[in-house]
Design a protein around this nucleic acid. Structure first.
Lengths: 207, 207
DNA sequence: CTGTTTATGGACCGGACGGTGAATTAAGGA
DNA sequence: TCCTTAATTCACCGTCCGGTCCATAAACAG
């Protein structure tokens, strides 16, 4: 029936929704983040989102779509807070210090150390779902690209030798984030994570 | 009834098992590796292990124990093939080249790119199960320790400056493995993984 | 042989799962 | 006002889930 799952809120016909899509996605993200895709039941989701099953189904299609939308929501909100320091700092060292500090803040949140939903829950699904695998690949590529942009800028500014392959260096920087995420999930404390982050910054900035 | 789940195969009374525990664990590992803990049903497991539900339950207790045993089995078998090159190569660079090459071989196996069961399926469970979280922490610490042993040997041999903190460097080396694993799960090809591994070797060996 | 011990095969259980249908309600359009 | 559209409520469905029970089979001890 509905070809597009109402992404744009185009018309104002019919009964208006009683929920805020962004707020609902926040709650879904929280749930998936902690429990993973398979571990989050529809009961978990509807109670966290304060939403009826039918409403959820009408708004997001099904559980897999909701998970996908939650991951995208994560990228668009929390993920951006990770990237913000990159271009808010002049030196490449300060930029990546700020990046990793923001990441550590994100993966050791107020609700406990949950890591990152991408690094900690998507890979499990990627083994059985090709769409999850493609989603994981796309997110990694997106992160690589953002970090690469900052690195190339630094290289043009002479902060990084032109002999260095910044494309691979961006992947190393992404690796640091993945590792911080998994270690946070395993219970590592912030000081330990900061030690690790500092080492990555040293490598990237060429200490 | 049974206080100990028959870990040691002590006596030879009663009907002998028709299955080989190691072979059964191999099959369980394959299943969990691909599908994750929640994604692998008992039907999946029993058919892969060619084992009856009751036999499985008698031998391993329950699904969570079987998963835990599978992860340990992974460490004891495949994990060791990763570590073997570390001490089989004289130079620190060659040692870690061999290590990452073995890792890449493992995470891009003949059954497709599945990454590593630890990096790709354990973190998802660590969000809801404290035993899974502790298991993840223990495995990471174990890997850190193994890599640290090689690094300290290299430092004593003068290959690594004494000013370098090899403890953190070992965590960096582990990070490289985690990243290779997740990227393999996302579908990265071997040449791309080798590029990344080479950069980590340069990082560690101080190229 | 008989009794004991352990593994096997297969049926079975209660519950949780993802998803659906029908009736109701609230808004805009004519 | 009446019709259309869309969101909400709630009960419901078939299936799959992890786990258990029981009768039977195969080994050893006596």
């Amino acid at each position: 029936m509905l070809s597009t799952p109402k992404t744009a809120r185009a018309r104002t016909r019919g009964r208006p929704p009683e929920f805020d899509r962004a707020v609902a996605l926040d709650a879904a993200l929280e749930t998936f983040w902690l429990r993973g895709f398979k571990g989050a039941s529809l009961d978990d989701l509807t109670s966290a989102m304060d939403l009826n099953r039918a409403s959820l189904y009408c708004a997001f299609g099904n559980k897999a779509n909701l998970y996908s939308a939650s991951v995208d929501h994560y990228i668009a909100t929390i993920g951006q807070t990770y990237l913000a320091p990159l271009f808010a700092n002049a030196s490449i060292a300060a930029a990546f210090e700020g990046f990793y500090e923001a990441v550590i803040d994100g993966v050791t949140g107020k609700h406990g150390s949950r890591g990152c939903i991408v690094a900690c829950t998507l890979p499990a699904e990627a083994g059985v779902s090709t769409t999850a695998r493609d989603h994981l690949a796309a997110v990694l590529a997106q992160l690589d690209a953002a970090l690469l942009a900052r690195l190339t800028a630094a290289q043009r500014a002479g902060e990084i030798p032109s002999t260095r392959d910044v494309r691979v260096l961006a992947q190393v920087a992404t690796s640091g984030m993945l590792a911080l995420s998994i270690r946070a999930r395993a219970g590592a404390t912030r000081p330990r994570l900061r030690e690790l982050a500092r080492e990555f910054v040293g490598f990237i900035a060429g200490a």
